[in-house]
Write a protein that binds this DNA or RNA. Structure first.
Lengths: 241, 241
DNA sequence: CTGTTTAGTGTAAAATTCACACTAATTGTA
DNA sequence: TACAATTAGTGTGAATTTTACACTAAACAG
């Protein structure tokens, strides 16, 4: 989201330098499916369009702080995992003035706090990535597409996926996340072996019962929680950057 | 680099919003070794310190155009390969005002145009990455360190290295580039096989004579020149992002 | 015509990936 | 109470890839 003037109050000459915003593409897993949170704008430009939450940076806050603040202000979502995605700075991105957007990817566990509508939007909603609105505000289609492709590719060589899981989880639940994000079936046996060998999981005493054989629950090893060196490759090819 | 005032002319209240600059970490191969181009500042702050070339973005140019323009203005270097690295936005980066820097990596062939000193600096010089100045201006040490680590990691799964080579080259020259950037010896036989299998090279009729058996010269296949999907893995581990 | 230098190929052991069959522990139901 | 259904988890061997290193090739210098 960018500045909040209407078409009438907008005065381009007042801006001498590009403005900077942060935009946050936030993902979660809902009903076993990857979702992204969008807000519906209630102001010109792109009034009524769905957009990625975001806004201007204050002078005294870092980019990360700004991203977290804007995310909470606009959607109520807190305590997310945050990672810089890319900076979009094309000249015609925003019809009001020159705006440079530093885009972030955020991940949040599915059992997290509920979302809230701010007074800048008419609605806030989780969208399944397979059923996104056809047209988004600004160049947010591009930002979102890039976020999804990067999420997929980083999944293969980082521990990103763990950010979407609750405290304890079964190995097959983890496998399901990988399948959802990669959009591809994985072999059960190979998954078990790989994840065990990686040594990232810590066995808990907990089991979960259901239909069929009960499943053991695991926890992400605390000391490895921020380990990004980890390689977990499922396919040969990976996308750029 | 950032604004060009002296300590005296600097007035913080005049800035209401963060300023945006682009900084360009430009690499080349000189004497078979990886080098980076730095400029020596001639103004407060960090007067006399070496810094990554860069500067403010104009209202009507994209980030990439700004990066190319600043690079040429400050160093005379043109026709580079450019790729966005990361955006640095910590609050205390610049003592003058809040500055957000979009950092780029640039690669240029070693046989490229000569460098030139602008009137904003006292010197411009290629530094071997193994012999960098001890202290750089601003947070440029961090930016540079990150650029080097990213260059290494992207080398393994992109065709980045080809940007450092002249039009035609031998396979062992290409291998040498990989070794320089990765800082590690590679097996000759394995390198030959991998690069041939990848199908990225086109044989030319040219040979280069010297001491010992003459070597065949190759060209990067034009249609694959921008192919980034290519996987060329030498080691298992790779760094984040 | 032999030694030295640089270019390039061959190959077999080791490690990893991949596909798929198998065993295990529980609940629902005949 | 057995046994089908369901979900969890293990085992295994063939196929592929990686790795290390030995070998052949083509030039020049003495």
């Amino acid at each position: 989201m960018e500045a909040h003037e209407t078409a009438e109050s907008y005065d381009p000459t007042r801006y001498e330098r590009p403005s900077v915003t942060v935009d946050v593409v936030i993902f979660t897993l809902l009903n076993q499916e990857l979702h992204v949170l969008l807000v519906q704008r209630r102001r010109w430009p792109y009034d009524g369009y769905w957009a990625i939450p975001g806004g201007f940076i204050n002078m005294d806050e870092s980019l990360e702080s700004a991203a977290l603040r804007e995310l909470e202000e606009e959607t109520g979502v807190r305590d997310v995992y945050l990672e810089q995605l890319y900076t979009f700075g094309g000249v015609g991105r925003d019809p009001r003035t020159r705006v440079i957007s530093v885009a972030y990817i955020a991940l949040v566990r599915s059992d997290a706090q509920p979302i809230r509508v701010s007074d800048e939007s008419t609605d806030v909603r989780w969208f399944a990535v397979r059923e996104l609105p056809t047209e988004l505000a600004f160049d947010h289609d591009q930002i979102l597409a890039y976020a999804i492709s990067r999420l997929r590719s980083k999944l293969e060589y980082t521990t990103l996926a763990f950010q979407l899981l609750p405290e304890v989880f079964s190995i097959l639940e983890l496998k399901h996340i990988y399948e959802q994000i990669l959009g591809e079936k994985l072999d059960k046996g190979n998954f078990y072996r790989k994840i065990k060998e990686a040594g990232l999981l810590e066995e808990t005493a907990l089991m979960r019962e259901g239909r069929g054989r009960p499943t053991r629950l695991w926890r992400f090893k605390p000391d490895r929680a921020s380990d990004k060196q980890f390689v977990f490759r499922w396919r040969e090819d990976r996308t750029t950057l």
